[in-house]
Computed example of a mutant assay.
Amino acid sequence: MSRARRLVLTALLTVLLAPHAPAGGLGGPAPWRALTPQGTWTPTTPAPPRACPALHLPATWDVRASVLADVTGDRTPECVLAVWRPWRNWPVARWSAHPTPITPNRDARGDSAHVAVLRPLPGGRYRELWVGSALHQPVTTLTVRPDGTLVTLETTYRAGRAAAAHALSEWRWTGFGFRLLRRVPTAARALTLDPLGRPAVR
């Protein structure tokens, strides 16, 4: 066999036997994509909102995400938190023999997911403005758009707080709680904003 043919055969074997990179690149993080007002996804870059200052929170709170933003529309920024904490029933349950709607809203560890809106004060102190009941669709992370719209990624209690989300939801403050604006199916683990103030995930 001539030297030229040996070189060609060696090159061919190298290509055939070399390990293949996974589809879509070399296995790096997925690209960021933003949700448009029309409900479609488009490539984007992240532009995270302001971070919440350090607060002296209860030791039982597992804070999965926090942002500093005016979610209530009073022109004063609040700390908005995605929190998992030990499940507690509604106080009215003590006078009823029937289970409340939030009874199944907890994971195998007995924790439930909540959205908390806190007013940060000097020295790490805070005042609770609103802490919601145990969520039916537990939140893994959240952010707040420039117009005050709360954006959450949601999973299931069975999957757990570290699981990938199956939906993105947008909410508007009503004065005491949040009203759902839209819910879009998606698979994602990270959530932030993009330079246009749109929710961005990957």
Rank of each mutant, 00 (worst) to 15 (best):
V131I: 15
G160W: 04
L57S: 05
R183H: 01
A164K: 05
F178T: 06
T60V: 14
P77R: 05
R202P: 02
L142A: 06
W95L: 14
L121M: 12
A34I: 06
N105W: 10
F176D: 15
G24M: 12
V8E: 13
V184N: 00
V67L: 01
V83R: 03
A188T: 04
P86K: 08
A30C: 07
A65S: 12
W95C: 06
T149G: 00
D70N: 02
L129N: 11
P46L: 03
L26P: 00
P104T: 09
A164M: 11
D147V: 01
L55W: 06
N105M: 09
R172E: 02
P86H: 07
G39N: 09
P122E: 09
W95A: 14
L35E: 05
C79E: 07
R119W: 14
D194P: 05
V184L: 03
A51H: 10
H98K: 14
R50Q: 10
A11H: 07
W32F: 11
P86L: 06
D147A: 06
R161P: 09
G175S: 09
G27F: 02
E154G: 01
T156G: 04
A187F: 14
D74K: 08
P138S: 08
T60S: 15
T14M: 15
A163V: 03
P53I: 06
V67Y: 00
R182M: 04
A93V: 08
V184Q: 05
T156I: 11
T45W: 03
A54E: 13
T152K: 04
A93K: 07
S96T: 12
A162N: 15
A82R: 05
A165K: 03
L168M: 08
V144G: 02
R64E: 05
P77G: 04
S112R: 04
F176K: 15
L118N: 00
